[in-house]
């Protein structure tokens, strides 16, 4: 709908809803608001007022982009609202009872997402606050889930101090995980290039693992956990393999396995 029509329609509705004694004052405000919209349209969408002031509703430092549309400078983002597991289970149950299977599936998927996000958060809590003097980057904590399916549950934690960084990635219940885990733990692969070993089998607290080194990205440790979880640790600017493995040992792998019900 054209903005003018929208503004005009809203104005009429609001004016009708207002008490009679307030209508005169209200209509004046409505008229001013309509004029502001008109000015905006006439100036090709540029919201800056002719007097250099700030029109109502516009942020003082919002600068228009080259197309004339202002760029967003404010807003508190979205409120984190993980799906309510119990409520979604009830919705799924009622939808199922009325044979509304599509709705039952959607609600069930939401319930699963809710549980997975809670599992992810509990794993983040189980990770150390600091590893080898590297503090965790709280803003970088991530739990993402696609529900049941290809990508599964992904948990990410970062630690950093100056140019030294450590990243933990835990992927669980992804469909491709079993093949990867089988490959990594087969013990059949070992590789060296030009006398330099870049990929080898190792162990982390009795769990079979693979360690890799790359000149540009640093160390990487992949530890398959149980049937469907992969724990991955990436370290940048670690002095050597020993130091990187010491960092890996700071993580309570058994606790992660326990939380994900991996044997």
């Amino acid at each position: 709908m054209h903005p003018l029509k929208l503004a005009f329609g809203s104005c009429i509705l609001l004016a009708m809803a207002a008490p009679v004694h307030a209508q005169g004052k209200f209509l004046k405000k409505v008229s001013n608001a309509a004029n502001n919209v008109l000015n905006t349209v006439n100036s090709g969408g540029n919201n800056s007022s002719p007097a250099g002031g700030t029109p109502a509703g516009e942020l003082p430092n919002a600068s228009p982009s080259s197309s004339g549309r202002p760029t967003n400078k404010a807003g508190l983002g979205l409120i984190a609202t993980p799906p309510d597991v119990a409520a979604n289970l009830t919705t799924s149950e009622s939808a199922y009872a009325t044979k509304n299977y599509g709705e039952a599936r959607y609600a069930l998927q939401q319930a699963m997402l809710g549980v997975e996000l809670q599992i992810g958060q509990s794993i983040l809590k189980a990770l150390p606050e600091e590893i080898l003097s590297l503090p965790r980057q709280a803003q970088q904590d991530q739990v993402a889930s696609t529900g049941w399916g290809w990508a599964g549950l992904i948990i990410k934690r970062e630690y950093q101090k100056e140019d030294k960084a450590l990243t933990i990635n835990i992927t669980n219940n992804a469909m491709w995980m079993q093949a990867i885990n089988m490959y990594l733990t087969s013990g059949m692969m070992n590789q060296s290039m030009g006398g330099q070993q870049n990929w080898k089998q190792t162990r982390l607290k009795n769990n079979r693992a693979v360690i890799e080194y790359d000149e540009s990205s640093g160390y990487k440790l992949s530890v398959p956990l149980g049937q469907s979880t992969l724990f991955m640790l990436e370290g940048v600017n670690f002095a050597n393999e020993q130091e990187f493995m010491k960092a890996a040992e700071a993580v309570d792998i058994e606790k992660i396995k326990d939380l994900l019900n991996e044997k």
Partner: peptide, 28 residues
Amino acid sequence: ARTAYTGGKLEDARFAMQQMMHELDIIT
């Protein structure tokens, strides 16, 4: 799923829900 979730056994709740999802897909 409800019992496991109430008892804080999140992974068990998740597994039961996966079973439900499969049942639902077959019924559909």
